[in-house]
């Protein structure tokens, strides 16, 4: 029963129309960076918002910002997604991945920046891709990423710096 009281007093009055308008593009972009292709990004965005909607009473503002909670759901959805399937790379990018390891600069030349970035992100570790997706997809600050991931802010900065460096070398 005391738990119920805590939920009662800490329940966030959420304006869902506002949340939807503001967070939909960010969550969608998080998955674009996380997974690469639009279809998966749309599927996972749907899953995230449906879970958030169904679990809206579980959101506790004492646990942090609403976006942090939302991205916890999003990141779990991404993990479930990768667990559920073997790595799948869209056909048009598969050839690019196959040749990327040899001469990335030459082989990716001529491709659009988006396609190049999508492919290069797949070469990062899962953790690095997660942080890049939070930073550049969801446009979160390093501090918010630290809250969302449990890493220290300085650690987030270091990992992101190295990940960007790795992308730069392969670009």
């Amino acid at each position: 029963m005391p738990g119920r009281i805590v939920r009662w007093i800490s329940r966030e009055e959420i304006n869902w129309d506002e949340v939807y308008a503001e967070q939909l593009p960010r969550v969608f972009n998080f998955f674009r960076y996380r997974c690469g292709n639009v279809a998966d990004a749309e599927d996972l965005t749907s899953i995230t918002f449906e879970k958030a909607w169904r679990g809206r009473d579980r959101y506790r503002r004492d646990k942090g910002a609403f976006s942090t909670w939302l991205y916890t759901i999003a990141r779990n959805a991404a993990v479930d997604h990768y667990r559920a399937r073997a790595p799948v790379v869209p056909l048009d990018e598969a050839a690019l991945v196959a040749t990327l390891a040899a001469t990335p600069e030459d082989q990716t030349a001529g491709r659009s920046d988006a396609a190049r970035l999508a492919v290069l992100l797949q070469t990062l570790s899962d953790r690095d891709r997660d942080l890049i997706a939070l930073k550049y997809g969801a446009e979160m600050s390093n501090r918010d990423i630290a809250h969302a991931t449990g890493l220290s802010e300085s650690n987030v900065g270091t990992i992101l710096h190295r990940a960007v460096q790795a992308l730069r070398e392969k670009w």
Partner: peptide, 10 residues
């Protein structure tokens, strides 16, 4: 690298 390249409106 263009790190903003994948960002867009759904």
């Amino acid at each position: 690298p263009n790190l903003d390249a994948l960002r867009g409106q759904p």
